[in-house]
Amino acid sequence: MYNYWLAVFLMMAGFYVVIAQGNLVKKIIGLGMFQTSVFILYVSMGKVEGGSAPIVTEGVEVYSNPVPHVLMLTAIVVGVATTAVGLSLAVRINEAYGSVEEDDIQELDDELDKIQESGL
């Protein structure tokens, strides 16, 4: 069962980084950790006691369940795709605002809002 508890712990850790950190790059890293921990959850589900890798081998009777593996292959790809898009957004934000800190960006946006409110 340790695998499951570990997955739960890592999910919480990754999720915390995503919502608590103000640095956009670190948020993306946290998101990556969060997603990876879900992979652990799924792959642990596929484990069968005494089973071996799901590739036909002579003399092996019990195999692990291939379905969670397939699902997670897809999820890993989704994860790296999200990371790539998130990081390129961070790069562009850094170009446009000169910062990747959420608080700085919020401040700059608020200032712009104020200027627009006071009349164009």
């Binding site: 992979f39 792959v43 890798a53 692990s64 969670p68 593996h69 997670m72 292959l73 890993i76 790296v80």
Partner: peptide
Amino acid sequence: VLFMNLHAVDVAFTEAAVG
């Protein structure tokens, strides 16, 4: 490595290459 231990060789391979 953990995925290898769980006999998820394809996933382990992909995680190492991608992650």
